[in-house]
Design a protein around this nucleic acid. Structure first.
Lengths: 276, 276
DNA sequence: CGTCCCCGTTCCGCTCAGTGAAACGCTGTT
DNA sequence: AACAGCGTTTCACTGAGCGGAACGGGGACG
């Protein structure tokens, strides 16, 4: 019968929430989200306007949040800002986040979409290691060895990380030498730097037989809360299957997948105009 | 005024909330607090038991939180854990605190100089919370939980703050009781006041196993422009490594570091007349 | 294999907690 | 003095949310 026919007359409605939560809880969450992305310190009216709620409601929610220390009030300006409990919550979430766990479902979906092996790499010291892989279901496929360190100058998974590291760290790594792993490894400093520019421009990296003969891959970077690169996702397989058209098809898929993982790590896609 | 005499018949009541929020919002906040301090991954029933709520309520709250990405569900185990939005919220809370920003480089240098974990605490209400820490690089080290409130009478980081608070506020806090956190906590008013005098004379505080068994620390106060104490820096680690000689070596380092942070906040070390 | 237990989820009628418009007191601006 | 904004409080009404109970599923046990 009623089937939640609420939204009928509500123009001050909160976002329609896909599932079946409660409106009150949704509103509390919305207020917190606003604090997470809005300006540091806000007032009741501003929040009410932003969320389309009455001032009374916002005020009550804030009082509850204050009572639990999620936000604090400046007694002079009567403005609200995040408090210790928010900090504790975030510190805890940071500790719990596990790159591998965050990436796993995404890796699997990416494998299903491409039918090639997908991998997750993590930046470790001045190199990287494979943290996880979901293997292709095809008979001829590529697999990688988890946990062993690889240098950052060869291969798509490596180079896409290198491309987003701070310049002085890139310099140090390049100065450390560019040993050839195969006959196709880029060993010229100049060529590598040009390649890194290209990677940043496109947002993903590709390679053919650079690190491993007969292997090709497409990789995109994974970022953390601080927008630092912490690893990469890749789709990889036999070079014979990675022609230009295929690579072009995979690139946006890998990029989207990597962004999704980044967001799960708290990374925030800046460059979105908020509000109207 | 009516004072909201609701709680009359409620035995399943949530914590009585000092002010005038809404019960629904209080409950949402309580769930989040539980996530902040409880175990990484929890189920509906456990939360319901812990908070004295019905499973239905908890389930609805969680659905709202999931819809806003504050928590995520593992589709297999049906367990809930903190999600990206919580992380973003905390990251924001951390970024907003300017005390933290001012202290970070100093904390890092102090860690490098001492090779022990260094921490930053902030005065909040009549307690303090850890705002930040830089961990020791040694294998056996101490770490603290950010954001959770601690009382001001136990431990070096706490007591050094207490020592520089206005006398009437010190009185109020002491009158609030001195619960023992370990067998070594100072619980005598007289002993505590003598200790506070000593802290003020030396400009730093030390503790052994007072707040946490087996932990030791040396702490110094941080002041703002008005020469009010707003927090403290500490060097802390396993008590076994903090003998008298080491403590004596650390003390001036911590003091200097704390002064540097204070100066970054606009504090001016010339006539420091507390209480004015 | 059935039994038990506890899990997370869903259902539904009752009811009081929460709603929002409006009033209020305040501060700073015109 | 009048205004315009703020955060807060009030109040009578009502539908959103409550919770007990039922449901479906997955281990553990015998």
């Amino acid at each position: 019968m009623s089937v939640r026919a609420r939204s009928a007359r509500v123009d001050t409605a909160s976002v329609p929430n896909g599932g079946t939560g409660t409106e009150a809880a949704d509103r509390v969450a919305d207020v917190l989200v606003l604090f997470a992305h809005g300006s540091t310190s806000v007032g009741v009216s501003e929040i009410a306007r932003e969320l389309g709620l009455s001032k009374a409601v916002v005020h009550r929610i804030l009082q509850s949040l204050v009572s639990r220390s999620f936000v604090t009030v400046d007694p002079d300006t009567r403005e609200y800002r995040l408090g210790p409990a928010a900090l504790a919550l975030g510190a805890r979430a940071l500790r719990d986040v596990d790159l591998r766990r965050a990436a796993r479902p995404v890796l699997r979906r990416l494998r299903d979409d491409t039918d090639e092996t997908t991998t997750l790499s993590e930046l470790v010291d001045d190199g990287r290691v494979y943290l996880d892989q979901i293997e292709s279901r095809q008979e001829v496929k590529m697999t990688v060895e988890l946990g062993r360190p690889h240098p950052l100058h060869a291969g798509a998974s490596s180079r896409v990380i290198l491309a987003y590291l701070p310049t002085e760290r890139v310099k140090r790594i390049i100065d450390g030498g560019l040993p050839a792993l195969t006959s196709d490894t880029i060993t010229s400093t100049h060529a590598l730097r040009r390649e890194l520019d290209e990677v940043r421009r496109r947002g993903y990296a590709t390679s053919h037989s650079e690190r491993q003969l007969g292997a090709a891959s497409v990789a995109a970077p994974v970022f953390n809360v601080e927008s630092e690169v912490v690893g990469s996702l890749s789709v990889c397989g036999p070079a014979s299957r990675f022609d230009d058209a295929t690579t072009a098809r995979f690139a946006p898929l890998v990029k989207t997948a990597a962004e999704e993982v980044s967001r799960a790590l708290g990374w925030d896609d800046v460059g979105d105009a908020p509000g109207a």
